[in-house]
Design a protein around this nucleic acid. Structure first.
Lengths: 154, 154
DNA sequence: CGAAGATTGTTGATGCAGCAAACTATTTAG
DNA sequence: CTAAATAGTTTGCTGCATCAACAATCTTCG
């Protein structure tokens, strides 16, 4: 019966004192899970993030998306290419700047968004299974403060 | 004065509701910061993690390290190579298994560990600057529970 | 006005980490 | 003793981040 005595794996106690390690590790795990589940919609995490921010912004340029998502401009090109190829996003002419595109979410894009939200909710519920509702909100709030602060210093 | 009206960047409100996104983003940020700071000691985050776990374990095999750190065996080979080349770790013969190595931290390795702990502590303090002591402990505890649970399900 | 500099989107090159397959040497199971 | 599993290693593929360079366009300011 080796399954009963399964190694106490995955979180060496030494490292549980390093919040940085925990953040980085949990981040990787989350990313992997979302990535796997989003495959069903033929979306990558980057596409999903961009689509969400774009939808919330209404209209925005690629550069604007880069600033908000922290994504590199060159990666953004590929991401928008992918989204446009799937018909979820359109590159329209920007009304006042001929260098830039005015990005728009299509109806198909909004459809995909609502499907995606269900999937994402499921994954999130799995990841946060050990926490009750109050703890989840606590975690969320702490993370928002950290990400916000970290984004304004570097 | 455009610097006063700096864009409210880095955390689009849409995404603050996705704890998965926050985790993944904060994890990336943390990793980058640590990576930068550890360069002063000529260490990568992977080397640092392996060195810590190894030190805490006393003696352990590469495979054991892989299980505990979640690192890929092929990556582990390169990581141990690096640590050994810097004289921080030794690959000794395993007493009872001629396939495996018994890894040991050298005196130089312990020296580096104590230097590294100071650096890591600094970075952690910077990252967690917005949180008071109680909140940090709260975050740590929540993350440990999540990582532990996530490590036992996949 | 008009030249200099900044911005937007794009391409290409580089490097790293994760993943999987194949392989050797050795140990364990049946 | 043979078959299967394990430890370590090598190699190649993939995905993503980062960087430098570039063309088109906008902005600034003498």
């Amino acid at each position: 019966m080796k399954d009963g005595a399964q190694a106490p794996p995955v979180v060496p106690e030494v490292l549980t004192q390093y919040i940085g390690f925990l953040l980085s590790r949990m981040g990787t795990i989350a990313q992997k899970r979302f990535s796997t589940r989003l495959e069903a919609l033929e979306l990558t995490p980057r596409m999903w993030g961009a689509l969400n921010v774009l939808d919330a912004a209404g209209t925005i340029t690629q550069h604007g998306l880069c600033k908000r998502t922290g994504m590199d401009p060159s990666s953004m090109v590929a991401t928008i290419d992918d989204l446009e190829r799937k018909g979820l996003v359109e590159r329209r002419a920007h009304p006042s700047d001929r260098r830039a595109y005015a990005l728009h979410v299509t109806d198909a894009g909004r459809e995909t968004l609502s499907e995606g939200r269900e999937v994402v909710q499921e994954v999130q519920d799995e990841l946060l299974a050990p926490l009750d509702e109050a703890e989840r909100e606590q975690l969320r709030s702490l993370l928002v403060r950290l990400v916000t602060a970290a984004g304004n210093t570097p």
